Amino acid sequence: MEFTFRTDVGKIRAHNEDSGGVFKNDIGVLAVVADGMGGHRAGDVASAMTTTYLQDVWGEVEEMATVVDAEKWLIEQFEQINEHLYAHAEKHSECRGMGTTLVVALCTEEFISIAHIGDSRAYIYNEFGFQLKTSDHSLVQELVRNGQISEEEAEHHPRRNVLLQALGTEREIKIDVTTLQVEEEQHVLLCSDGLTNKVNHDELKAHLEGAGELSIKAEKLVHLANERGGEDNITVALVHYKEESNERSNAQ
């Protein structure tokens, strides 16, 4: 596996409320993208607390033998983070109302378990095509599911950024988890909506299937979102299962 991570403040906002990273241990890598929201700088706090927590607990994991273990671990971590964020906001008035989206890919040599809440997304690209593996927890996506609007209408809907779920905003949360088997030459793309609001499905695919280093692919995606306005923070995490699976991974 090789991996890379990029986050950018964009062209309009004064500070970056996105956070994340790709963290390696003996089991594999944990890719994380969190998009914070709410209050003066509280979005920064929520996403940074989330990333730090996941980096720390992943560093302590010594065994992850089965898919059941991986999915259970992810759900437990999401619930723990939610409790931490909710309690922090209650104790610190400047953080009231803070929250964060979160998408995580737990990548081993055998399987990839993906968990998410909010509208940060996970995509998979392999020989079977390019597929979105998460469903936004948003008002607009709910309208699509109910048949009230089309996918095309959702892309430009004025309320497309209204979330129905996030970490830290409510005591009870519902986490979506899915697991996929590993394929050769497979890419895992995690990103915040600062990317997907500016770069469409086909363009994301085109950037992944092209030649070039993984870090350059991530940089080009961020650059394209900025080129088209960059009104939001932009974050990209990429994991690539190379054919030489035993080749040493490296963070870019």
Rank of each mutant, 00 (worst) to 15 (best):
D119M: 07
L143I: 09
G99P: 14
D136L: 00
R121T: 10
H137V: 07
F111N: 03
R121L: 11
S113I: 03
Q131N: 14
V144Q: 05
A105M: 07
E127F: 12
V144F: 04
Q131G: 15
F111T: 09
F111P: 00
D119Y: 05
I124N: 12
I114N: 02
L106Y: 07
I114A: 02
R145K: 15
A154G: 07
F128R: 14
S135N: 13
V103P: 05
H137I: 04
N126G: 07
E142W: 02
E109C: 11
Y123R: 14
H116I: 04
Q131E: 14
A122D: 01
T134S: 01
I117V: 09
H116E: 00
R121I: 08
E151M: 13
A122N: 09
E142M: 05
T108G: 04
V104H: 06
G129L: 14
L132D: 10
I114L: 01
G147W: 07
T108Q: 02
I112M: 06
H137M: 06
F111Y: 03
Q148D: 14
S120E: 05
Y123Q: 07
N146V: 10
E153W: 01
A154F: 03
V140Q: 04
E153A: 07
T134F: 00
I112N: 06
S113V: 02
Y125P: 13
Y123D: 10
A105K: 01
L143Y: 11
I112R: 03
S150T: 10
E127Q: 15
Q141E: 12
V104F: 00
V140E: 02
E110L: 09
